[in-house]
């Protein structure tokens, strides 16, 4: 059903990354262009202060090197000859790229040596700590394990609901009904799932076909154009899995809901409900109710458990009453 995928991530990809708002990196390349094909293979970053000072033990050269005001001032202070030898030593290592923050520009010899070593020099107008935070966030998303799942991801009352089930069971049709009722579509048919910050499953659609749906009998439709921009979302955390399946008379479906079934996606256990399909069952309403119930659970209220507790209390009360009245 799902599997891992891995592609090389180049410095060029970093420059062309479509990240916006509080993730924007504002990067531009100011030198060493041939090196843009270098690969970024780790999510960490390094400030090469120690190395510029001549200390190379444990130098993490495979990381993105960030040069801020400190490193820049240090380089400016170094005598020309000394600076040249230090920089030449630094660039004997294969560095994916150097980033100058605060819109700082490297000295002429830095640019020349980096160019010769084919190491790209990038520049951003962000401060070093802000850039560090953003790049770590962006890279951790990119390097997060990714899986493709056949299903539909919709946001229902703020809960990210992943609809799964066999082809033809009515996932897309149910999702369409939900959109019509004011909920939002994230992805149809192919959901890309990334595990970020430990246990958050982020779902997005594929770039090309995002926010399009295939409805049997209609063909491919564009949800944004048909329902407006309010009916879509780019990404959403997956908080509930609804498994649709054809009604199976042999199978016992959950009648109480006190047991918490989960589905394992990339090692994260997501609450999962199995909904059997049968004529006369209004699936979108059932999905909406499941989402509402999930919200209640998040607030600490478990309908089925509370109900049972009330029943038990009542039974207990009845039995004491009996003892009191009849002396049994």
């Amino acid at each position: 059903m799902a599997q891992q995928s891995k592609e090389k991530f180049l410095v060029l990809d970093l420059l062309q990354l479509d990240v916006r708002e509080n993730d924007a990196l504002d990067l531009k390349c100011i030198g060493g262009r041939p090196g843009l094909i270098r690969e970024i293979s780790v999510t960490e970053i390094n400030r090469p202060g120690l190395e510029l000072g001549g200390f190379y033990e444990n130098f993490a050269h495979q990381r993105i090197q960030i040069l801020g005001r400190g490193e820049n001032a240090f380089l400016q202070k170094l005598a020309k000859e000394k600076r040249r030898t230090e920089l030449e030593k630094l660039f004997t290592y294969t560095i994916p790229c150097c980033v100058f923050t605060h819109s700082l520009t490297p000295t002429a010899d830095f640019a020349e040596i980096a160019e010769k070593a084919q190491c790209p020099i990038l520049q951003t107008d962000l401060s070093s700590s802000e850039f560090t935070m953003r790049i770590l966030r962006v890279l951790s998303t990119i390097f997060a394990p990714k899986t493709l799942i056949h299903g539909v991801l919709v946001e229902v009352f703020g809960i990210g609901v992943l609809l799964v089930g066999d082809s033809g069971v009515g996932k897309s049709e149910s999702a369409l009904s939900l959109i019509e009722r004011g909920h939002r579509l994230i992805a149809d048919d192919v959901v890309e799932i990334r595990r970020v910050s430990g246990n958050i499953l982020m779902g997005t659609g594929s770039q090309v076909v995002s926010h399009h749906m295939e409805i049997r009998g209609l063909g491919i439709i564009n949800i944004t154009h048909l329902f407006g921009v309010g009916a879509i979302r780019d990404k959403k955390q997956i908080q509930l899995v609804v498994q649709l399946e054809f009604w199976n008379a042999e199978k016992n479906y959950d009648r109480i809901g006190a047991e918490e079934a989960t589905m394992d996606i990339q090692g994260v256990h997501v609450p999962c409900v199995t909904v059997p399909i049968k004529p006369g069952r209004n699936i979108p309403v059932i999905i909406e109710t499941a989402a509402r119930n999930e919200r209640l659970k998040k607030m600490g209220y478990y309908s089925a458990r509370e109900f049972n507790r009330n029943v038990m209390n009542w039974l207990e009360g009845e039995s004491t009453r009996e003892i009191f009245l009849n002396g049994k």
């Binding site: 599997q3 891995k6 493709l148 082809s167 048919d189 594929s206």
Partner: peptide, 29 residues
């Protein structure tokens, strides 16, 4: 693919999609 009872998948560059889904097949690029 939909004419067969078997589960059918298509795989390209380690990405696997359901062979009975138009969107999936197009997504492979």
């Amino acid at each position: 693919a939909s004419g067969f009872a078997s589960q059918i998948y298509l795989e390209k560059d380690n990405e696997r999609v359901n062979g009975k889904s138009i969107m999936g097949v197009i997504t492979l690029g």
